[in-house]
Computed example of a mutant assay.
Amino acid sequence: MESKSRPGSEKTLGQILVDKGIISREQLDRALRVKAEQPGKYLGEILFEMGVPQEKINRALYYFNKRRTIGEILVDQKLITREQLEEALSKQKKIKEKWGHTRPLGLLLIELGYINSRGYLTALSKHFNMPILSMKDYQPNPQLQKVIGERYAMERKIIVLDNSAKTIKLVLAEPSTQIMEELQKAIPPGKVMEFYLAGYGEIDESLRRVADPFSFTQYR
């Protein structure tokens, strides 16, 4: 049976964003010039740095299936070879067949010694279009953490950086479509979410500085 592609899936991300009125042709041309000068950067990263809303870029990446996989990004960035990727994918498939669950590709590549945690973080950043922040020695605001629920924040390793009338800024250690959808449901309609990325250890350590295991509030 022939698979159905989403409307516009044959177009580039830039063309889609122009067609949807999210960016102008001039913005796209400027972003493409930057990309030509910095080939290691993806268009979504550049547009976000130019001020285009992250949420709109990510929605287009997801809906039109333009998001590159973690493996493709690692190969693009020359952090692993195509052969190393195939080896990890084969191991991932065998684990799923034997145990019934999928082990994250990045963690498998770390276990195989092909990348380090920083390389994995870089790939996650490009995959989800999230800038990397350092949370080392950061002290989370307990009141801000309550916006999404302290227990949920600890379990999902999320720090709430800021919560203004129009925007909430969140730092994630292990981003996923599921987590972002859960957060979207918890945030008041109309409020824009901005996502950032930090190392798991840094976020975990920061959260433990302010965590009181006897006063967690339930995530709503």
Rank of each mutant, 00 (worst) to 15 (best):
R6S: 11
K11V: 02
L13Q: 06
D19W: 09
K20C: 01
G21W: 06
I22E: 04
I23D: 03
S24T: 15
L28G: 08
A31Y: 03
G40K: 12
L43C: 09
G44L: 04
I46W: 03
F48C: 12
E49M: 08
V52S: 04
Q54A: 00
E55T: 09
N58P: 02
Y62T: 15
L79A: 15
L79T: 14
L85P: 02
A88H: 06
L89P: 06
K93S: 09
K93H: 13
K94T: 13
T102R: 06
P104Y: 12
P104M: 15
L105Q: 03
L105S: 02
L107H: 05
L109C: 03
G113H: 09
L124T: 07
L124W: 01
S125A: 10
S125F: 02
L133M: 13
S134A: 12
M135E: 07
K136V: 14
Y138E: 09
P140S: 06
L144D: 02
K146R: 14
E150P: 01
E150A: 00
R151T: 14
Y152E: 09
M154L: 15
K157H: 10
K157I: 13
I158P: 01
L161F: 06
D162E: 14
N163L: 07
S164L: 00
I168R: 02
K169V: 04
A173I: 13
A173S: 12
E174G: 05
S176T: 15
I179Y: 06
I179E: 10
A186K: 09
A186G: 00
P188Y: 03
P189I: 10
F195G: 01
G199V: 07
S206G: 05
L207P: 03
V210W: 01
D212C: 07
S215H: 08
Q218W: 10
Y219P: 00
